[in-house]
Simulated assay, not measured.
Amino acid sequence: MLDVLEPDSEQGRVYRALTMRGRSDHKAIAHHTGLPERTVDDVLHALAGLDLVRPVGGDPMEWEAAPPDRVMSLALKEEENRRARLWQVGAELDRLYHHARAASLPFRYVEPIEHPATLIRLTTRLQERAREQVRWLDRPPYYSKPHHFRAQEETQKRRMATGIRYRTLYSQAVYADQELFSTMTRMAALGERVRVLADLPVKLTIGDADLALLVPEPDRTGLEGALVVRPSGLLQALIGVFETLWTLGIPVTDIGGEQGLPERDRAILTLMAAGATDEAIARRLDMSRRTVVRRIASLLDKLGATTRFQAGVQAAKRGLL
């Protein structure tokens, strides 16, 4: 919705063309904006779905724009909804914080985890007992040994092969860890649903709606204070935290698949969407900065985007990430 207010976005260019020209068909709009006709047609139908433009008939079909005050009203409502969702996350985290601080009390549904090895063992058990899905908030710092990571990958592959759905929301730090990035890529190619968010508040693993393993303050205390959370209001709050953060994450799925882009370009798009600089992309993919700049320019052109952010949005919409 907010893209329509950005003069450089595809939605913004199409909407502004309609407000300036009045009724127009998609070919006239394409000529006015310089966008491909297919792109204009897709944008018009997307805007129609948001009730920001409407077809008025004719041959070829003409379109007209909704009044700008309506657009502003809808955009402000969307922003209010976004803020409300963020406040919801904050409220749930506040509840989580107070429950975690009181974990030393004899709650029947919260148990402390005394040793990191116990946490690793419980993580495996949670996956083995899952009947439908495993949800994960994955963020640094990491304390597991290489053989733990290999064992986890084998467990996940085996469980996914039996039909267990995995959804993992990674911290953006995944792009700074070559081994973790490679693991994420392999799991996504096998069917794990993956998203990335700039930062995550806690480490969290949830098995179905039956059990959660929580590390409340990983930056300050490491794995100390880790908790087992059984069915309770706290577990429901943790599930709510995951689902809300999931809606805010950037999809990164089928990274290695073939959807019209070479694997190297797909990797560049993925890193761009996460906010990586040209230098960081060049280091991660072992390319020269000049080659990265040239490939990014080509990708912007293919996606009809004028900024890196728009390229990330367009790539996600087209299923390229």
Rank of each mutant, 00 (worst) to 15 (best):
L197M: 03
S232D: 01
G163S: 04
V241S: 13
R186G: 15
V202P: 03
L204Y: 06
L204C: 07
G240V: 02
W246H: 11
A173N: 12
S171C: 11
E179Q: 13
F181M: 13
D177I: 09
T168I: 11
Q172L: 08
G191M: 08
D254T: 07
V215W: 03
F181G: 09
E217D: 06
A189K: 10
G256H: 08
S171H: 12
A226G: 10
T244I: 14
V196K: 12
E243A: 09
G163K: 03
T205V: 10
T247A: 15
L180E: 08
Q178A: 10
L234G: 00
G222N: 09
D199P: 00
G256K: 06
Q172F: 02
T247E: 13
R165W: 09
T185H: 05
R220D: 09
E179A: 14
A226D: 04
T183S: 12
V229P: 06
G222F: 11
V202G: 02
L261R: 04
F181P: 01
L227Q: 14
E224K: 11
A176V: 06
W246E: 15
T221F: 07
D177S: 13
A173I: 06
A198P: 02
G233Y: 01
G249V: 05
A188G: 15
G260K: 01
L211D: 08
I250Y: 02
D208E: 12
P218E: 07
W246R: 14
S182W: 00
T205M: 13
G257F: 13
A237F: 00
L248W: 00
L234V: 01
R186D: 15
A176K: 11
L211M: 10
A198E: 12
V229D: 01
V202L: 13
L204K: 05
S182D: 14
I164H: 05
R193N: 09
E243N: 12
E243R: 10
G233D: 10
R186W: 04
D177H: 14
E179I: 13
P201Y: 06
M184V: 13
R195D: 05
A212L: 11
D254W: 02
R230W: 01
L190P: 12
I164F: 03
T244G: 14
L235W: 01
Q236H: 04
P201M: 08
A176P: 00
S232T: 01
L190I: 10
S232C: 01
D177G: 08
G222H: 11
Y170Q: 09
G256W: 06
E192T: 14
D199H: 11
L227D: 14
S171Q: 05
E258D: 15
A237G: 13
P201A: 12
R186S: 15
D210C: 00
G225D: 02
V202A: 10
L245C: 11
L204R: 05
V174T: 09
G222P: 06
A212C: 14
L223R: 06
R230E: 01
L238T: 05
P216W: 00
L169F: 01
I255W: 08
G163M: 03
G240Y: 04
V228I: 12
G207C: 10
P231F: 03
G260N: 04
